[in-house]
Design a protein around this nucleic acid. Structure first.
Lengths: 134, 134
DNA sequence: GATAAGGGTTCCAGTCACGGGAAGGTCAAG
DNA sequence: CTTGACCTTCCCGTGACTGGAACCCTTATC
């Protein structure tokens, strides 16, 4: 399979696939013409990576997941630990975003949003902790 | 004021402040020795930026907010529009993260996490849409 | 055989918002 | 006069790509 075929199949841009090869996530073969020749196993790995990335795993986490995937003697506990660590990161990000959202919603709610210049959002940013109400 | 003073006062690393000058967010004066000389107004802007960044605004959004802050004839509607646009982005990110969290939690929940190699997390990533249950 | 379209390849630069660290000038104290 | 803390600029690195240039390969058509 050529790169655009796998790209469509895995739902990844060809550029991204070349990048994944460059950093050693996959190692497709090469044809006599210099083209990358992807095997089924390469395709599976790419789909695997695409889904892991879709769940927010970093490239390095994907690398570890792929290693575990390849290691038939792995302990599922190792995989679970990785996933749970990532879940903690996700939860943390959500908390941060919700805090931002709450603060900003408070400011937005206090703002008339008309032609006048008085703006609690700006004063809130300028004065900190004040003019906010969330 | 020298850079480390404002850094402490604004809660930003000195490196970041130099970067903000480089991209034109602030324009501190210079002393005869070449040192940056920050006025009160520079400090206020830095605090303003620090808070806006803390609410997740991008640098370019901060630039716009600063311009509105400086423009005494602004309409608060413009500020509100900017903030509301950002709120939409935040909400979107939260939705994405919650979706990831739900999917991953389903996989993690299904995984025994012991010494055995069988792992629904890995098969879930490999097979897509299967072995998941969230 | 020429040519054009549509693959593929490499390499280089840019993104965003900084951070690390080197090499060197400046300032206040002892 | 030296020490050490501060300041300066400059350049490289981060993560995970993306865009584009310049060039090679294949296939079909004229």
């Amino acid at each position: 399979m050529n790169i655009n075929e796998v790209a469509k199949a895995a739902g990844l841009p060809a550029k991204t696939i070349r990048y994944y090869e460059e950093i050693g996530l996959i190692r497709p073969l090469r044809g006599g013409n210099g083209y990358r020749a992807f095997r089924e196993s390469d395709m599976h790995k790419l789909s695997f990576i695409a889904r892991a990335r879709g769940l927010g795993f970093s490239i390095e986490e994907c690398r570890k997941l792929l290693a575990l995937y390849d290691d038939k003697g792995r302990a599922s506990a190792d995989v679970k630990a990785l996933a749970e660590g990532h879940l903690v990161q996700i939860a943390e990000k959500i908390r941060e975003l919700r805090a931002m959202e709450a603060t900003l919603q408070g400011l937005v709610h206090a703002c008339a949003g008309d032609h006048r210049p008085d703006c609690p959002i700006l004063t809130g940013l300028a004065d900190a902790g004040d003019a906010c109400c969330a």
